[in-house]
Amino acid sequence: MSLLKDLTKGIYRENPVFRLVLGMCPFLAVTTSVENALGMGAAATFVLICSNFLVSLFRNIIPSKVRIPCYIVIIATFVTLVDMVMNAYLPDLHRSLGIFIPLIVVNCIILGRAEGFANRNPVLNSVADAIGMGIGFTMAMVVLASFRELLGNGTLLNINVLGAAYQNQPLLIAILAPGAFILLSFILGFFNILEKRKGGRQ
């Protein structure tokens, strides 16, 4: 049962972005379109699962003094792997994610889960945790990206939703840098209200 709990907690209760406010840099930067958000989410989830798996597998072998450098090397290896594979098979996505692929290394969610969960939990639970956190991160990015793409460009997944008339005069600020901050602020505020409602009822 705890396996299921580890899997689902990342999606809402401990959502890395909306609840823990981690991994902000890629979250804000790549959410200009839903496509980018999905690509980034997939890349980060893959790295998260692999690093949690290895860290958990070797948690009794890696000396605690050098555990952080070891985790960083493990994470950086998988990030480079994703970078190369994406460049070979998905060059367009690789191009639009740009510098944020190497920066998955310093995404605090991944190091945070290695240090905070995988190094003291069994392999299966760690992988479940990674999948849950990855899905939570991806979902959060898709939510913000949907708002930004829809308002700023009138499209969703590059399909025109709001019509050509809107596209000529879209709410550009949403897709520019300030839009990311402001929309995130409102989403976080919304989650706070939700939490409070829930707390009040119990």
Partner: peptide
């Protein structure tokens, strides 16, 4: 955090 992000925006 929410108001901090708003200010940053």
């Amino acid at each position: 955090k929410p108001v901090a992000f708003l200010v940053a925006g």
